[in-house]
Amino acid sequence: MRGGARSDQERGSTVIRGTIDTPGIPSRSDRLPNTSTSYRVLVVENNIGDMEALTRGLRRNGHTVDNAKTSDEALAQYRNVDMVLLDLELPDLDGLEVCRIIRSSCDVPIIAVTARGSELDRVLGFQAGVDDYVVKPYGFRELLARMEAVMRRARPALPAKASFRGISHGPLTIDTGSREVELGGQRIDLTRKEFDLLLLLASQPDSVVPRRQIMHEVWGDSWSRRTVDTHVSSLRSKLGGSAWILTVRGVGFRIGHA
């Protein structure tokens, strides 16, 4: 090999090539150093081999993984995850359209993972709302690093009033360090924005939090009225009742009691 170039294997970087019968299955050596944060990731991938390889690699790095092979499956699951890895070649609907639908209702981070590699494809992807764009074949450790970078950009700082370690509100416990919620000792799985919304309300238990403040602190003014209402509805469902989040008509919301 001329010019001192090294193969992917010699560099120690696993490459996902987009086929089931080629090398590229992530191994223990593909863990990203000094990374302790785990996410719930939705892998939307039409190719079964690619899906299985990517899922194994993500789980080895501590992430929880959900899978979808079609747009219908993806659109039924994206609200419950921290990040979406989206193949653009889906059998029932173009991945760009799936991205637009997701982006119209929430801001969950989306990374396109696709064989479409032209400049125009990338531009269309970013215009549709992806946060990053990875072209097959790709280095698995690079993908992990990109995931971390996207999550750092997407995760807002906690409100100053809620910067302490934990909040207890009756049987409801919110751990601001681990970002975990328990109700009556049972863990409640929340998305990133659901957690931020609940934390904001619980940090001001005797106050009505105006809708404008919610939008500013949780969504950074990139919002719609439907976005807030959708997340409130989802939180009520996961907490087991509407009494946990009370609507003060014309003003905003406040934390309640079940």
Rank of each mutant, 00 (worst) to 15 (best):
R11V: 14
F140W: 04
L88V: 01
L90H: 08
S38L: 12
R31K: 14
G12L: 04
A160P: 04
Q186A: 12
I20N: 08
Q127S: 13
R100I: 05
L246E: 07
D82F: 00
R192T: 15
R141E: 14
S105W: 03
R249C: 00
L190R: 03
S207A: 15
S104I: 06
R6W: 04
H63D: 15
P23Q: 13
E97A: 12
A149V: 10
L86C: 02
P91L: 01
S207Y: 02
V181S: 06
A149T: 14
G240F: 03
S234G: 14
R116A: 04
L172S: 10
T22S: 12
R141I: 15
R100D: 12
T14R: 03
L54P: 11
C106W: 04
T64H: 13
S71H: 07
N47Q: 11
S224K: 04
E73Q: 08
S13P: 07
I245G: 11
V135T: 01
V108W: 02
T176A: 10
D8H: 07
P205T: 03
L246D: 08
L120T: 14
I188P: 09
A149F: 09
S237V: 13
S7P: 03
L201D: 08
I255G: 04
S224R: 06
R141H: 11
I48M: 14
A258K: 08
T70E: 04
L198M: 12
E73F: 02
S168G: 10
